[in-house]
Design a protein around this nucleic acid. Sequence first.
DNA 1: CGTCGTCTTGACCAAAGTCAACGCACGTGG
DNA 2: CCACGTGCGTTGACTTTGGTCAAGACGACG
Lengths: 232, 232
Amino acid sequence: MAKSLFHKLQRLNPLTEDDFATLERSLGATRQVRADEDVVSEGDRPTTCLVLTDGLVGRYKQLRNGRRQIVSFQVPGDFVDMHSFVLGRLDHSMGALTPCRLRPISHPAMQDILDKHPRIALALWREVMIDAAVFREWVVNVGQRPAYERLAHVFCEVAYRLKVVQQMHGDRFAFPVTQEELGQAVGLSAVHVNRVMQRLKADHLVTHRAGVLAIHDWQGLQTAGDFDPAYL
Amino acid sequence: MAKSLFHKLQRLNPLTEDDFATLERSLGATRQVRADEDVVSEGDRPTTCLVLTDGLVGRYKQLRNGRRQIVSFQVPGDFVDMHSFVLGRLDHSMGALTPCRLRPISHPAMQDILDKHPRIALALWREVMIDAAVFREWVVNVGQRPAYERLAHVFCEVAYRLKVVQQMHGDRFAFPVTQEELGQAVGLSAVHVNRVMQRLKADHLVTHRAGVLAIHDWQGLQTAGDFDPAYL
DNA sequence: CGTCGTCTTGACCAAAGTCAACGCACGTGG
DNA sequence: CCACGTGCGTTGACTTTGGTCAAGACGACG
């Protein structure tokens, strides 16, 4: 069983040995996706739900004018498309930002879990609701905060979520994302992201080098980003 | 039974007479909320879920610096806080933008419905997932679209959702929202909203007067707002 | 060693914000 | 019934934030 998934679910609703055994049985063979490839695409009608076990994926929407907006980052342990189970057709795409590994759960198997394993079901619904909370927070971030706060906030969120699944190592974590992509996540141009990153570094809050993000002043970063993890 | 709720659920997953009877029995006494009052507040731990039967409410988050972001509009027929059922504590507030009427369903009653009435349950989960899709679209809207498109897009969305619950009358619907509030929804200053509204009017797309929004060119508005209802 | 993608920098530009004043409609109280 | 206050919409002048464009540096990799 993927370790991240374990930590994640334990936090949402403690599960029994038996629950985990059930999950393990329901998970299909690992699928690998190369960086910059789509995991799923807008318009797809998947027949499975996917669990991200390794890597970083970006959920995004492509606009007609060519721009794109990343609407969330997904980290290991995330059930990455519960909507496909309920809604069928996807309204957005998900792209691998790094090489990824995912494991599917067929929709029937998912139905079975929801029907017969209430503890897992509750954990899953909690996850869905928290995802929604994350989207709301992103609306706030992009809608109201200036560039500096905006970036600080995203870093806090990702760090916090990675900590839950034990993917933070000390004050640093793997975050091999270009400034272009960062810009697409926070609604800024790559150039502006660049300048703001320099300010964040000058203020001894974070540095981003060689695909790893190091947080030098966690408290300061939270303050700068107006970050409160209550929504997570 | 509230008519909007009926139309809404029929669209999400057709229900039987019996399902509706169950719902009707589960709904508590109507609660009235005056305009500008909060329906629920951040930090609350409600013991009921609420169905909006009349009026318009804005889901919002207040920032420490005093600004606020409206993250969605809720229209009649909406189950307005399913998260309270799953998560307990609210991460945001909901304010009545107009006088509102709401009917509660206690959490135990909700549990009962989800356990024993799979058709209703499915409709509800679809609604939850569509809400999430709306949040995603708002991230896109606020993150990538210029002011003019942004406003056009929100108008399209609200119109579309009101149409579903039969609250559009011809090309117009009640939308008694100040330009200040509109700005809080799309991440613009009230002054800028004002100027853009004038352009929208000059372009014969919409007019907003006396609390009603009239759409003069539905096709044009959709194009201007880069609106595609696939996510709803 | 050269190429490609990303980061960096500078000069300039445009969208949207801010501030302040004024108009207008509505409601309240004298 | 009028005078005034209040909230909202409107306008203008000015500022700021962030966008765009273009060029150069840097670094990984074939």
